[in-house]
C-alpha cells in the first residue's frame, strides 16, 4: 500500500518536472514536425503544391548532389569529430592537473574561440584564408610554400579550411563539458592509481575515459548532429563551393529552400533523411551498448 503511493508520487513528480518542457516542445515542435512530414509528400513550386505520394522519395534516389552532400558531410564527420574530441579531452585532462602552471591562463585562452558568434568567426576565417590573406602571407614568408595555397578556390583545400574552422571554434566548447565532468571525478582514485605506479596514459585510458564516458557519448552525439546540420560556417565561408566541394546536407536543404526554385516538399524530405540517419546511428549505438553489457 505504502509502496504504491510512493510509486504514484514518483509518477506525479516525474511528470511535473518534465511537463513545462514537454508542453513547450509540444507546441513549438510537434506542429512544425507534422507539417514538415506532410510537406514531404507534396510536390510543386512554392505555394503551388499538390500531393505527390512518394515522388520526393524517388527523387532522392536519383539525386547526385544529395549523394555528394552526404559524402562531404561524412568526410567532415569522420575527420573532424575525432580530432576535435581527442584534442578537447587532452586539453581537459592537462588543465585538470592542479600542479600545472598558468593553468587558468591556458584554460581561458582555449575557451575563448567558443564565445565568438558563428557568423563573426566564419567571416574572420574567410578573410584569413583568402588568397592574399594572412595565412598565405605567413606561410610564404616562412618559405613553407612557394605559391599561395588556393584555400578557398580548390575543393580539397576548402574542406581543410572548413575542418580547421570548426575545430577552432568547437574544441573549447567540448572541453567545457569535459572539464565540468572531470570535477565530479573523485581525485582519490587518481591518487591511488598513481601510488600503485600506473603510468599517465594508462590512467587516462583506464580511469578518465571510462569516468567521462557519459559526457563523451553526449558530446559525440552532439557533434554528430552538429555535423549533420553544419550550415552557418559553410554558408558564410564557401556557400558549398568550390565545385560543391563543401556542400553539406544542411547547405543543400537551404539551397533547395532559398536559392533554387522553392520546393519545400523536397527540402522537407531531405531533412527527414538527416533524421533517418540519426535514427539509424542511434539504433547502432544502442545495439553496441547492449552487446557490451552482455559481454561484460
Amino acid at each position: 500500500m505504502a509502496q504504491t503511493r510512493l510509486d504514484r508520487n514518483e509518477q506525479i513528480n516525474g511528470w511535473a518536472f518534465v511537463m513545462p518542457a514537454l508542453v513547450l516542445l509540444g507546441i513549438f515542435m510537434i506542429y512544425p514536425i507534422l507539417w514538415s512530414l506532410w510537406m514531404s509528400f507534396q510536390v510543386g513550386r512554392g505555394n503551388n503544391f499538390s500531393f505527390g505520394g512518394l515522388a520526393n522519395i524517388q527523387r532522392l534516389a536519383n539525386d547526385a548532389l544529395l549523394v555528394q552532400a552526404l559524402t562531404n558531410t561524412i568526410i567532415f564527420f569522420i575527420i573532424q569529430v575525432p580530432i576535435m574530441i581527442v584534442l578537447a579531452l587532452l586539453f581537459a585532462v592537462a588543465l585538470n592537473d592542479a600542479t600545472l602552471r598558468f593553468r587558468g591562463l591556458f584554460r581561458t585562452i582555449l575557451f575563448l574561440p567558443c564565445v565568438t558568434s558563428l557568423i563573426a568567426y566564419s567571416s574572420l576565417f574567410k578573410s584569413m584564408f583568402s588568397n592574399d590573406g594572412i595565412i598565405n602571407q605567413a606561410l610564404m614568408s616562412l618559405h613553407l610554400v612557394s605559391a599561395p595555397i588556393p584555400w578557398l578556390t580548390d575543393p580539397f583545400w576548402a574542406k581543410v579550411v572548413i575542418i580547421s574552422a570548426i575545430t577552432w571554434r568547437w574544441t573549447g566548447y567540448n572541453m567545457i563539458f569535459y572539464l565540468a565532468a572531470l570535477q565530479n571525478v573523485d581525485k582519490s582514485i587518481y591518487e591511488a592509481a598513481r601510488i600503485d605506479g600506473i603510468p599517465g596514459w594508462a590512467r587516462f585510458w583506464n580511469i578518465t575515459v571510462p569516468m567521462l564516458k557519459p559526457v563523451i557519448l553526449f558530446t559525440t552525439i552532439l557533434s554528430t548532429i552538429g555535423t549533420l546540420q553544419l550550415f552557418d560556417e559553410i554558408n558564410n565561408i564557401t556557400q558549398g563551393g568550390p565545385g560543391n566541394g563543401t556542400m553539406t546536407l544542411s547547405m543543400y536543404i537551404y539551397n533547395l529552400t532559398f536559392r533554387m526554385m522553392p520546393s519545400f516538399g523536397y527540402s522537407a524530405t531531405v531533412s527527414w533523411v538527416i533524421v533517418a540517419i540519426v535514427a539509424v546511428l542511434s539504433i547502432i549505438q544502442f545495439m553496441i551498448a547492449r552487446d557490451r553489457r552482455r559481454g561484460a
Binding site: 578556390t153 580548390d154 575543393p155 563551393g241 568550390p242 565545385g243 560543391n244 566541394g245 539551397n255 536559392r259 533554387m260 526554385m261
Partner: peptide, 17 residues
C-alpha cells in the same frame, strides 16, 4: 527561364575542375 539559379549552381560546380 525558371531554372537559371539551378543552372548557375550546376555550372559553378564544374568551374574549379
Amino acid at each position: 527561364g525558371t531554372f537559371t539559379p539551378e543552372a548557375r549552381l550546376a555550372v559553378r560546380a564544374q568551374l574549379p575542375n
